[in-house]
Amino acid sequence: MEGTVIELQDIHKSYGDTKAVNGISLTVKKGEVMGIIGANGAGKSTTLEIMMGLRRPDSGTVKVLGMDIKEHAQEIKKRIGIQLQQTALYDRIKVKEALELFSSYYDKKRDLQEIIDTLGIRPYLNKYVKNLSGGWQQRTSLALALVNDPDIIFLDEPTTGLDPQARLELWACINRYRQEGKTILLSTHYMDEAQKHCDRIAIIKKGKLVACDRPKSLISSLLSEEGTMEDVYLQVAVEA
C-alpha cells in the first residue's frame, strides 16, 4: 500500500501461558500519529516493542519502512527512534552525555543543538538524568529518540505520571515533529490527549485489536456525537 510505514499481520506473542498479543493486524501510514490505548496488560507495550524490534513475535509478519523486521532489524533500527516506559538510562549519566552517547550509535545524525533547543533541555545538560523531574526525564528520553532524525518515533506512555502542564509541554514538543511529517506511534492512558492529538486510535483488549479508526469516527460509530474517547474506552476497551 502506498505510504504505509508499518504493517503488522496476524501477530501473536505469548509469555508462558499468557497470550499478550493474540492476532493483531494493523497498518500505519506515513505521517500519521497513531495512538494505542487499552487497559494495563492489554498488550500495548508488547505490540509496540514488537514494532521496535525489541521482541520477536511467535508468529505473524512485521514490516517496518517496507522491510521485514526479521531480516532487516539492524537497518530498521537506524531509522526509528524509541522511548520506553522506564527512562531506561544509566544511573550516573548526565543529559548531555546521554545525548552524545546515543548520537554516536548512528551514522545519520540530527543536530543535537537543535534538538536541545527545541525540547528546552539546555539548562539541564549537566544534570544527572535520574535527578530530573519526571517531565524533564521524559523530554530527555524523547530527545534520545530523535538523535538519528528517525522516520518513525515510538513512544510508550510518554505522558504517564506527568503533571498537566508537563503533559501539555511534551505534546507541544511531539507536535513539532509531527509537523515535519514524522510518523508517531504512542500508547497512552489519557483519553483526552488521544482524542485531541491522534489521527487514529487503535484499541487493544486482551491482546486483540478491537477497534481502529479516527477518534471522531470511533465516537460517532459507538455513541452520540457528544461523546468522548473516554466513553468509547469504557465501552470498548474495558472488560464487561
Binding site: 521496535m52 524490534g53 525489541l54 539492524q74 533500527k77 537506524k78 526509528i80 524509541i82 520506553l84 522506564q86 527512562t87 531506561a88 538510562l89 544509566y90 544511573d91 546515543f102 550509535y105 548512528y106
Partner: peptide, 11 residues
C-alpha cells in the same frame, strides 16, 4: 533499569 533494552533499540 532497562538500559540494555533501550540500547537494543539502537543499532
Amino acid at each position: 533499569k532497562g538500559v540494555y533494552k533501550r540500547l537494543m533499540g539502537t543499532p
